[in-house]
Amino acid sequence: MQYMALIYTDPALTPPMGKAMNDDYFAYTRRVKEAGVMKAGDALQPVTTATSVRVRDGKVETIDGPFADTKEHLGGYYLLDCADLDEALKWAAQIPGAKYGTIEVRPIVVFG
């Protein structure tokens, strides 16, 4: 069973992306990899770099900015392979961002 752990943080409440934070994420990533749980994971550039597109009446509309203007932004993700939700929540709670942001955990659809 695969789960997407989406890391949402409020930049105003987030400690600067310094060495301490990098070390925390490196350590977590190593652990989750060694456990054979991590399928993928990335950090995203800040939301100020986001561009949104949609197609209406066959025309592409391009918008500067994120899809939704919220205080908390999607900052990165881990794709986790776990036995069940309990295991996924355990790993998600250890993501460094969980201490000041929120991790949303969503199961991946399996097309049978």
Binding site: M1, A83, D84, L85, D86, V105, R106, P107
Partner: peptide, 14 residues
């Protein structure tokens, strides 16, 4: 069903 909330007893630490 979709999120696989397990049908099991919690781990001792939980």
């Amino acid at each position: 069903a979709a999120a696989a909330i397990p049908f099991k007893l919690p781990e001792p630490e939980d």
